[in-house]
Design a protein around this nucleic acid. Structure first.
Lengths: 205, 205
DNA sequence: GCCTTAAAACCGACTAGTTGGTATGTTTTC
DNA sequence: GAAAACATACCAACTAGTCGGTTTTAAGGC
């Protein structure tokens, strides 16, 4: 471990603990209901420590969205759904991968930024923008595969790769809402299955 | 106007004003960030008035979800999308109708219960259940038409009318989230278009 | 390796305002 | 004349954020 890496690790440890606490709490209760005091208690830091790392609660919200982007992008980059040679297969494998993640307690598979942007889109443009970047940035990682699938299987009028990529995110986010309303993950998985069927029909038809 | 109707109108007037205020505020800032004081100010009532009608903020949340169900069901029952003779046409017309509603300021076309359940699903089971009833109740109004379309155009294995009806709600809810993140309604409309294309492909294929 | 030094990391008590909720009225309605 | 519909004043707990102080860390001179 290099000098720098150790520095970073130590420097980040409290900050990271606060961010991890934020992810847990915001996913469970939302942004507004999550209090600074609570995060401090979970992370084992005092108020002074919190406001040393984040100049405001809003800044924590933005940082949490960025941290979330980082964590999830790491997860998806290393995921096995990139393996198939066929681009359409890769897109469908992505949906299967997302579907497989929808398991267990609701707060553990739902999306931080989707939850946060619902409350903050009007009150904090900084948080809104961070959530937009997270969602759209992730959607963008799908575009190349969708584009390649269009090259191979043909295009449908009015359907762009970007629009379809964002639609996948809409379906997943909507599935999370229904799962929260229902109190279980099944309905979200079913919506993912509909999405997979849509994409299959779109290309194989 | 009957004696009863006048009574109801007067009796409901303050309560309704509070509920209307709740709809506006919750759709804009979420449930947690909406304060009782604020609702009182908007509705022109004092705290005493509020807690006379609602025994707690949570009770207001439940009442707001119920009020929302009432209002929206009124809107949809009288909507023109029921006119077509063909059941599939009716389903597609429903989506067009929903898409046409997605206009103007975000807080004015997004869904109250979808917003509220994101924050409250874990903290308040009463609110969660009210939101579930609202979403699923509305989805159920689509089932008959979907079922009839299946009778007419054939079924796809693994696709039930109930599941497809809920999927439409998931797509719409997800579209709202993306619209909030993006700061405009267009993306939600595009997702609705994908949904329409999916249903068309599903039945016409 | 040791001492100095300064900055960064963190603590903990404090504040001013806000929160949902209550207790005790007064007015209105039937 | 009593019950329902409000108003008023109040409270204890909690809210984000501040501020002066202490500890920890990293770098440099010797």
């Amino acid at each position: 471990m290099s000098r720098d890496a150790i520095d970073t690790a130590k420097k980040e440890s409290v900050r990271t603990r606060l961010l991890e606490a934020a992810l847990t709490s915001i996913r469970r209760k939302g942004y507004s209901a999550t209090t600074v005091d609570e995060l401090c208690a979970i992370a084992g830091v005092t108020k002074g420590g919190f406001f040393h790392h984040f100049k405001s609660k809003e800044a924590l919200g933005v940082a949490a969205a960025d941290y979330w982007s980082q964590m999830t992008s790491g997860l998806f980059v290393n995921a096995p759904y990139h393996e198939p040679d066929d681009p359409l297969e890769r897109v469908l494998a992505y949906i299967d991968f997302r579907s497989a993640l929808i398991e267990g307690p609701i707060a553990e598979f739902t999306c931080l930024v989707g939850t946060m942007v619902q409350e903050a889109y009007d009150s904090s443009d900084a948080i809104r923008a961070a959530c937009e970047a997270s969602i759209c940035g992730h959607a963008a990682t799908l575009e190349a595969d969708i584009e390649a699938a269009m090259d191979k299987y043909g295009r449908t009028e009015g359907v762009s790769a970007a629009s379809l990529a964002l639609h996948t995110q809409a379906v997943l986010q909507g599935g999370f809402i229904l799962a929260k309303a229902r109190g279980g993950p099944e309905i979200a998985k079913e919506s993912a299955a509909h999405l997979k069927r849509y994409i299959t029909l779109l290309f194989k038809h």
